[in-house]
């Protein structure tokens, strides 16, 4: 039995249940200088402290290798460019270059999955906004898709699409789709009646209303959905790696490989790297959303 059974739970986490509509305000309050970094800084320091505490105090000597101290992780997975296989008895090798390659592969999977999810999501939400029956027809299945753990779909996806790249992309699509649809639809149908009447008075077609009224009005919620989905698509790429193991290895598969070979420094390094990607993507879309809407959008905090 692998000693990593508990941490292996990463693979079984149903990712991204935090997909309620409009959880994340697309436009945050203006920064209050450095003060906004104090809170996260304190939490981060506590976390690192706890990590050292676990290594030095909680773990018995025989198990210390399971939780290597942070500076070892940094050193072996970030500050060492390449550890060839066999170095110091390492079965897998590792180092920053290998992890970056894995990360790049996963980024491609996540980006493609996200792009397709955005296209499908926008189209679906638009169709739903135009006809109630479309909404009624699709919504239950989207909710089901959203509620089911991806694990349950693995045999089906594998049988249909194989166990490599496209199946990993599909996992990303499945995970990223719902927040886009839900938030876009919410934005499209939340336009006040007075605006629709103004457009109707001047003979605007449905398409004109969508283009000139509903899409622009929905931008803040669309970006909220995009931001959530972008983060989730990274999760999807990592999770997909655990199930669909053929082709170029992504960061998820590296995590899994390191785990199986007890390369804990490399494993933690890869985990941190995928987390950083998720955070970067989330922040990136947040900034993009703010750029697009902040000149006109009145925030709740304004």
């Amino acid at each position: 039995m692998s000693v990593f059974d508990e941490s292996g739970a990463v693979a079984h986490v149903s990712p991204g249940r935090s997909t309620d509509v409009a959880v994340v305000p697309p436009v945050g309050p203006p920064g209050e200088g450095m003060r906004r970094f104090v809170g996260p800084g304190v939490v981060f320091a506590l976390f690192v402290g706890f990590w050292y505490f676990t290594h030095h105090v909680l773990m018995s000597d025989a198990r210390k290798f399971l939780v290597p101290p942070p500076h070892h992780v940094l050193n072996d997975a970030f500050f060492t460019w390449d550890i060839p296989r066999g170095t110091g008895g390492s079965r897998t090798g590792g180092g920053l270059s290998r992890n970056l390659e894995g990360l790049w592969s996963s980024t491609q999977v996540a980006a493609l999955g996200l792009l397709i999810a955005i296209l499908i999501g926008l189209a679906l939400a638009t169709a739903m906004s135009q006809a109630k029956w479309v909404e009624n027809a699709f919504y239950p299945f989207l909710v089901a898709l959203q509620a089911m753990p991806i694990l349950a779909f693995v045999p089906l996806i594998g049988a249909l699409f194989g166990f490599d790249f496209w199946s990993r992309v599909l996992v990303c699509i499945m995970i990223a789709l719902f927040p886009i649809v839900a938030n876009t639809l919410f934005g499209l149908i939340s336009v006040e009646r007075g605006y629709h009447e103004l457009m109707n008075l001047h003979g605007a077609s449905r398409w004109t209303k969508l283009r000139k009224l509903q899409y622009p009005a929905a931008m803040p919620s669309i970006f909220t959905g995009l931001q959530i989905s972008a983060g989730l698509s990274v999760v999807g790429a990592v999770v997909g790696d655990f199930f669909f193991r053929q082709g170029e290895p992504g960061i998820g598969r590296l995590i899994n490989t390191y785990q199986n070979s007890n390369e804990t420094e490399q494993m933690y390094g890869a985990v941190i790297m995928s987390a950083l990607l998720g955070i970067a993507v989330f922040l990136g879309f947040g900034i993009l959303g703010r750029r697009v809407v902040s000149h006109w959008h009145e925030t709740r905090n304004a």
Binding site: M199, K212, A217, M219, E298
Partner: peptide, 18 residues
Amino acid sequence: TLFPWRTVRRNVELIAEL
């Protein structure tokens, strides 16, 4: 019922546009 994403001028243009 001004469109918040349009400037005053662009709002005034709206009906002419339609």
